[in-house]
Design a protein around this nucleic acid. Structure first.
Length: 294
DNA sequence: CACTTGACCTGTCCGC
DNA sequence: TGCGGACAGGTCAAGT
């Protein structure tokens, strides 16, 4: 569930709350959720280190430290990175409009404690997510990052030329599978793939090589649009997602097709349906999004 | 090599 | 009410 808008929202919260603080201690409650890369040491490279920046690449979080090491994180489907200040932990309590209650809870896998009493709880119901401590110089070599496609919202670089080149390598596959492939473009997952395909009236099973360059450009633009709209709404909360302060995102209230099967298409009124494409639950308007016959 | 499917986990929901 | 099974979705390994 956490896709680019959700991970970026978490990143902003972590950056605001953690930069400048020093790690005082680490509690690993679930070993498989916390990886120490060969050559890295929790005692030497993490404990006592100050956070210098929190960055993001696609759906990957990068917590950079002044020791030259980075704590890399992936939330996968059910991961959360929730910050509680010393006051919230021991004083006035935390905001009670949150999806989550007292922390730690049974989904808490790792706790990072900071010098001022602030704590970060890495929660992950399904244990698919991970944190990994590694030298900053090794981060770009993580296979997922090394192969990752362009950032759709990077103001410094237009993703279109790279996107066009990369998606063309997947000519026979469905356009939905291509959009979900992080090597084609970074950060898109099931929600925003369905939303973008609906916006440009493409059936998710359409083979990439049946789509012209003009339409592909519209598709990328639609993806950028839904992603930035969602970002402005704090992302999408289906069941698990919350930001670094425990707040939900509200994009799904404005979603056009995702999880709206059985409801009318906002464009034409036809009942939206759900099918499986690329092994994923996929939401479409059967009238707006027709499969071109081969 | 291109592409699809299954595994990884746990919680929830549905039908019997 | 209890219980089995389908389903959820990001990425990687294994299969076609």
């Amino acid at each position: 569930m956490p896709e680019l808008p959700e991970v970026e929202t978490v990143r902003r919260g972590l950056a605001r709350l953690l930069v400048g603080r020093r790690v005082a201690g680490v509690e690993v409650r679930e070993g498989k959720s916390f990886v120490v890369a060969p050559g890295a040491s929790v005692e030497r490279d993490l404990e006592g280190a100050a956070v210098t920046a929190v960055r993001r690449r696609g759906k990957v979080l990068l917590i950079e430290l002044d020791t030259g090491y980075t704590l890399v994180g992936h939330l996968k489907m059910t991961g959360q990175m929730v910050v509680r200040t010393a006051d919230e932990r021991w004083g006035a309590g935390h905001p009670n409009d949150s999806l989550i209650g007292e922390l730690p809870d049974r989904s808490t896998r790792v706790i990072l404690e900071f010098d001022d009493g602030t704590a970060v709880y890495f929660n992950d119901q399904r244990k698919f997510g991970w944190l990994q401590l590694m030298p900053a110089s090794a981060v770009a070599e993580i296979p997922l990052l090394a192969a990752m496609g362009p950032e759709p919202l990077d103001p410094a670089v237009d993703a279109w030329p790279e996107f066009r080149r990369r998606i063309a390598r997947h000519g026979r596959t469905s356009v939905k599978a291509a959009l979900l492939n992080q090597e084609v473009v970074a950060g898109i997952g099931n929600i925003y793939a369905d939303e973008a395909l609906w916006a440009v009236k493409l059936h998710p099973a359409t083979p990439v090589d049946a789509i012209g360059a003009r339409k592909l450009h519209q598709l990328l633009d639609a993806a950028r649009h839904v992603i930035s709209l969602s970002l402005s709404l704090g992302g999408s909360t289906d069941r698990n997602y919350v930001d670094a302060e425990g707040r939900r995102g509200s994009y799904l209230q404005f979603a056009n097709v995702f999880r709206r099967d059985g409801q009318p298409c906002p464009r034409c009124g036809t009942v939206l349906t759900k099918l499986r494409v690329a092994g994923r639950g996929t939401h479409i308007c059967p009238r707006c999004q027709k499969l071109p016959r081969a």
